[in-house]
């Protein structure tokens, strides 16, 4: 499922930032952190105002006509050939992997495939295209990390988060058992099969708590809202953050690079 070999582009001067609807409405801080991290790397960030949603919720629910209509509205947002960066493995996977399928047999097939080829998961882009060097300014802390299934398996970035966190000298990254197992979010799955999803997230939270960490970071807002929401409702000592917010905060926010 993962691209066999990724052809990373040279570091560009500009990128399109595709925030995703969850970031837009629920986690704008994570989006801002992503934008600022890119800017600090000297990249101009273009934020297409007309972006809405990649179409994934309808797509995975089987409503492909509806998904296509929404996805088509995104196809016109990236006229120049700049990379498109996405702070989510899930939406990134939708665009990179599923847009070509969704637009097969339509007049937009070439365009969709062209756009798909420019989509990058943001942490992957920071590490492997920007070659970011992070200087940790925070207090010593211990965190766990949950890489979303789509980041891991569709975008192939399982190694990226730990590498970025590894650059932070005061951050002790601990790994939960069964780290590669799904947290139970799965979009509409969590609503269609609440008990199964609930069983999955409860075990995920238990394994996170068992690491001894009090905080976790993740690549995807869906997982974040699932895991942190479960912990909050069930009074488990586990707080979550998008990895971009964490990286931005740890490295002093707007402080210019040393």
């Amino acid at each position: 499922m993962v691209d066999p070999i990724k052809m990373y582009p040279a570091k560009p001067s500009k990128v399109y930032f595709y925030a995703t609807c969850l970031v837009d409405m629920f986690y704008p801080d994570a989006g801002m952190a992503g934008v600022q991290l890119l800017e600090r790397e000297g990249i101009e960030v273009i934020y297409p105002e007309d972006q809405t949603c990649c179409g994934q919720p309808a797509y995975t629910s089987g409503y492909h006509d509806e998904a296509r209509a929404v996805a088509r509205a995104q196809l016109g947002l990236f006229p120049e050939d700049y990379p498109i960066v996405v702070p989510s493995g899930s939406c990134g996977g939708m665009m990179r992997k599923h847009y070509p399928d969704l637009f097969k047999d339509t007049t937009d097939d070439v365009k969709a495939a062209e756009i798909a080829g420019r989509v990058w998961e943001l942490t992957d882009f920071l590490l492997n295209v920007c070659h970011i060097k992070l200087e940790d300014l925070g207090e010593p802390t211990t965190v766990a990390m949950h890489t979303s299934c789509s980041a891991r398996r569709e975008m192939g970035v399982a190694e990226v988060g730990p590498k970025l966190l590894g650059q932070l000298k005061n951050v002790n990254l601990v790994e939960q058992v069964r780290a590669e197992e799904c947290c139970g979010f799965g979009g509409t799955f969590a609503v269609r099969h609440p008990e199964i999803s609930g069983a999955m997230v409860s075990e995920k939270v238990d394994t996170l708590v068992n690491t001894g960490a009090k905080d976790f970071v993740t690549t995807d807002c869906g997982c974040l809202m699932n895991i942190a929401g479960y912990a909050e409702k069930n009074h488990k000592p586990m707080d979550g953050q998008h990895i971009l917010s964490f990286l931005w905060e740890r490295t002093g926010g707007n402080r210019s690079k040393p």
Binding site: Y27, P194, G198, K233
Partner: peptide
């Protein structure tokens, strides 16, 4: 629905990223 059976509801931000 099924979501809040196990979790708190996600919280809308005061301002959207847009």
């Amino acid at each position: 629905g099924g979501w809040t059976q196990y979790r708190t509801a996600p919280k809308l931000a005061a301002k959207t990223l847009h």
